[in-house]
Amino acid sequence: VQTVGQWLESIGLPQYENHLMANGFDNVQFMGSNVMEDQDLLEIGILNSGHRQRILQAIQLL
């Protein structure tokens, strides 16, 4: 089972590990259960829309 940090590294966005972990997104399986939306990522400080889309697309593959 991948950690959130390993998963972010695999999609090329390791800089957001602290954003996700500090806001309770600390379990890759949980994130894959379709609980995260674009607005959630924006609210936790991921401002780059391309990065948000990449995260959301990768979540669909979990």
Rank of each mutant, 00 (worst) to 15 (best):
H19I: 15
L20R: 00
N18M: 12
A58N: 09
S49Y: 12
N18E: 15
L42I: 13
P14W: 02
L8P: 04
S10Y: 06
I55T: 03
Y16F: 00
F30Y: 13
Q39F: 06
F25Q: 04
G32V: 15
L61I: 08
G24T: 00
S10K: 09
Q57E: 14
P14F: 04
H19P: 06
D26Q: 10
I11H: 03
H51K: 02
I59P: 02
L56S: 05
N48A: 05
G5P: 08
R54M: 07
L56I: 09
Q29V: 10
D26R: 12
H19G: 04
N18C: 09
S10G: 09
L20S: 02
L20T: 01
Q15P: 00
Q53I: 10
E17W: 04
V1A: 06
N27K: 11
G32D: 12
I55N: 00
I44V: 09
Q15N: 00
G5E: 06
L56Y: 06
L13R: 01
N23K: 10
L8S: 01
L62F: 11
M31Q: 06
G12I: 00
Q2G: 10
T3M: 04
I59Q: 11
S33I: 10
R54V: 08
E43G: 10
L47N: 12
S33T: 14
N18S: 14
D38P: 05
T3V: 02
V4E: 00
H19F: 08
F25S: 05
G12K: 04
Q60H: 12
G12F: 02
L13Y: 01
E43C: 08
D26P: 07
L56F: 07
E37P: 04
G32C: 15
V1D: 10
Q57W: 07
M36Y: 11
S10H: 09
Q29I: 10
S10M: 10
Q2M: 14
M36E: 07
G5I: 08
M21C: 12
E9T: 13
R54E: 07
L41I: 00
G32A: 15
M31P: 07
I11S: 02
G24V: 03
E9M: 10
L20G: 03
Q2I: 15
L56C: 06
V28S: 06
I55R: 02
Q2N: 14
N18A: 13
G45W: 04
G45H: 04
S10N: 09
S33E: 15
L61H: 14
Q39G: 11
I59K: 09
L13E: 02
E37F: 08
E43S: 13
F30E: 15
E43N: 15
I44N: 03
G12W: 00
E9C: 07
N23W: 07
G5H: 09
G24R: 04
Y16I: 01
V4Y: 00
N27H: 07
V35I: 15
Q57I: 06
G24I: 02
G5R: 14
H51G: 03
M36T: 14
D38N: 06
W7R: 04
V28N: 05
D40N: 08
L61C: 14
Q29R: 12
M36I: 12
H51N: 01
R52S: 02
V35L: 13
E37Y: 09
E17T: 13
N23T: 06
G5Q: 10
D38A: 06
G5D: 05
Q57D: 14
M21S: 07
L41S: 03
D26W: 08
N27C: 10
D38E: 14
F25T: 04
G24C: 04
G24S: 04
L8I: 01
G32P: 11
L62V: 11
F30N: 15
L56K: 05
M21V: 15
E9P: 02
L20W: 00
I55E: 01
L13N: 03
L42R: 12
F30V: 15
L20D: 00
Q2Y: 12
L61S: 14
F25A: 05
G32R: 15
E17I: 09
D40P: 02
R54D: 06
D40R: 10
H19S: 11
H51M: 00
A22N: 12
S10A: 10
N27M: 13
W7T: 02
G12M: 03
V28I: 13
N34F: 12
H51I: 02
L42T: 09
Q39D: 13
W7I: 06
Q15W: 02
D40C: 08
A22S: 13
I55D: 02
L20V: 00
N27Y: 06
A58D: 04
I44K: 03
S49P: 13
S33F: 10
S10P: 03
E9G: 08
G45T: 03
N48E: 10
F30C: 15
G32W: 11
P14G: 09
E37I: 08
E9I: 08
S33R: 14
D38W: 00
D26S: 12
E17N: 05
I46W: 01
S49E: 14
I59G: 06
I44Q: 03
N34Y: 14
H51Q: 02
L42M: 12
E9W: 07
Q39P: 06
D40L: 07
G32K: 15
G24M: 03
G45I: 02
Q2K: 14
N48S: 07
V1L: 15
I46T: 01
F30G: 15
M31N: 07
N18Q: 15
V28Y: 06
E9V: 07
M21W: 05
N18G: 12
V28K: 05
S10I: 06
L61D: 14
R54A: 07
F30W: 09
E17C: 09
T3R: 06
D26C: 10
G12P: 03
G50C: 10
Q53K: 14
N23P: 04
D38Q: 06
I44S: 06
P14D: 05
E37K: 15
N18V: 12
M21I: 13
G12E: 05
M21R: 07
E37S: 14
L42P: 02
G45A: 01
N27L: 13
W7C: 02
G45C: 01
L47A: 12
S49M: 11
Y16N: 03
F25M: 11
L56R: 07
Q60K: 15
Q57L: 07
P14S: 09
I11P: 01
N34Q: 13
S33N: 13
V28L: 15
L56T: 05
A58F: 01
V1E: 06
Q57A: 11
T3E: 07
I11M: 07
G45V: 03
T3H: 05
V35M: 13
E9N: 12
N18I: 12
P14V: 06
